[in-house]
Design a binder for these strands. Sequence first.
DNA 1: ATACTAGATAAGAATGTTTCTTACTTAGGA
DNA 2: TCCTAAGTAAGAAACATTCTTATCTAGTAT
Lengths: 155, 155
Amino acid sequence: MQHNLTRDELRQRLLEGGLKATHQRIVVFEAVMDLHGHHPTPEEVYQHLRPANPTLSLGTVYKTLDTFVETGLIKRALSEEGGKRYDANTHVHNHIYCSKTREIVDFEDAELEQLLADFFSKRNLENFEIKGFSVQLTGNKVEPDKQIRITRVSK
Amino acid sequence: MQHNLTRDELRQRLLEGGLKATHQRIVVFEAVMDLHGHHPTPEEVYQHLRPANPTLSLGTVYKTLDTFVETGLIKRALSEEGGKRYDANTHVHNHIYCSKTREIVDFEDAELEQLLADFFSKRNLENFEIKGFSVQLTGNKVEPDKQIRITRVSK
DNA sequence: ATACTAGATAAGAATGTTTCTTACTTAGGA
DNA sequence: TCCTAAGTAAGAAACATTCTTATCTAGTAT
């Protein structure tokens, strides 16, 4: 359990979104935060919670995750391989996607955001109300057991 | 039929990829090209082809599309909503994704590619072999019946 | 504290999607 | 023309997602 919001804080955030703060919603929310960085599928969330919540049903997990996305509490991650992935990180950020392991790694980069914001201010979108943009790097991990990292070139 | 490759050219491209040029592969390839811009699902490809190819099976469509992706003849498009989408456009390009209609619109922008290439040359990726990057705009169509377009701001 | 009510949940059925299996067929090479 | 590796059809199987309905519960009013 590495999430850092108390249940009362979670309860608060659910209510702010106009959602009843039920036990199921609280634990599903916690699970997505606990699995942060994994961009879990509904099934993974379900398996994570099952031991401690044997009465929870998979259908509820699906529904709850989608409800959270609608409310903006979490986001859906883009994936190439089909299937739904969820992301506790609601900040503007980008993804590195490994085709081999299907891992999705977040990266935030203010410089990149600024670059893109500047760029799109020079473009006109007709008939489209833009909610956000993100950059997706696609490729393959070299060492499957080691982490992927992105760093600034030091010169 | 707005695709512009002859069957012999297609046959050629399949063979270059080390694939036997069977009738099924040729028509599936044509279908993805015909549906270019729609980023079709396997089911859509199947429905498109069924009238003229009543013996074609859905399983073959799935398998064939994946084979093409492996060979690099087509790409998979990223989607938020789960489910597989395929893209005949193998050029480097970006996508505009409408959450409302689930439409995916391609856009190519050399200036943007250059900007990103320059940017990533200033970043180091540890343990990741990058195959490509793309920008995804997410948002909603305003008029569902009209086209989405992106243009340069004229000053 | 208790009762009420809208909304949430469990459970599993229904539906939809993707993969797998097997026997049959075909493209391309000898 | 024959041979063989590879591809295909067909449907079963596995898997993923959504829907339905009866039951339950959080938050509210009493």
